[in-house]
């Protein structure tokens, strides 16, 4: 009969363990969740994960810009500037995409999952 633990069983179990470990490294580790860098007046202000939905206020040179974070994307909700171009930009969701309120000196930069693009031609 074919019962009992054999040498090959250990080998298969070992290889299976390696395979499982490798799968985590390969499928999980190389693709960290997208994050959002918030820059204020030429300096990095914060780096926020784009995992859950929330809104927050960023203090710029004119006043507070309200931004919304959501899984994988972000946008300006309101801004103290006059033109509201930042709000009109809408959602940014790809690594390298930018939304900016230049009068308030606040800009949002999506950092890609595996950074598919080094820059986005706008």
């Amino acid at each position: 009969m074919n019962t009992g633990i054999r040498a090959g069983d250990f080998l298969v179990a070992g290889l299976a363990l390696v395979l499982v470990g490798w799968s985590y490294v390969h499928f999980w580790h190389s693709e960290p969740a997208a994050s959002l860098e918030v820059w204020v007046d030429g300096a990095r202000h914060a780096s926020l994960p784009l995992i859950e939905s929330r809104t927050l206020a960023i203090e710029g040179v004119l006043g507070a810009s309200r931004i919304e974070l959501a899984p994988g994307r972000a946008r300006f909700l309101a801004s103290p500037c006059e033109s509201k171009r930042c709000v009109h930009t809408g959602w940014i969701d790809q690594g390298g995409m930018v939304a900016a309120c230049l009068p308030n000196r606040v800009s949002l930069h999506v950092q890609g999952r595996d950074r598919r693009y080094d820059a986005i031609n706008l």
């Binding site: 074919n2 019962t3 009992g4 633990i5 054999r6 040498a7 090959g8 069983d9 080998l11 298969v12 179990a13 299976a16 395979l19």
Partner: peptide, 21 residues
């Protein structure tokens, strides 16, 4: 594949793992 490796070398545990994976 597991069977081809030989029944004396690979037992139910190894076969079960191969099948599951």
């Amino acid at each position: 594949l597991g069977r081809a490796l030989g029944r004396h070398w690979l037992g139910p545990l190894g076969l079960s793992l191969l099948a599951a994976l």
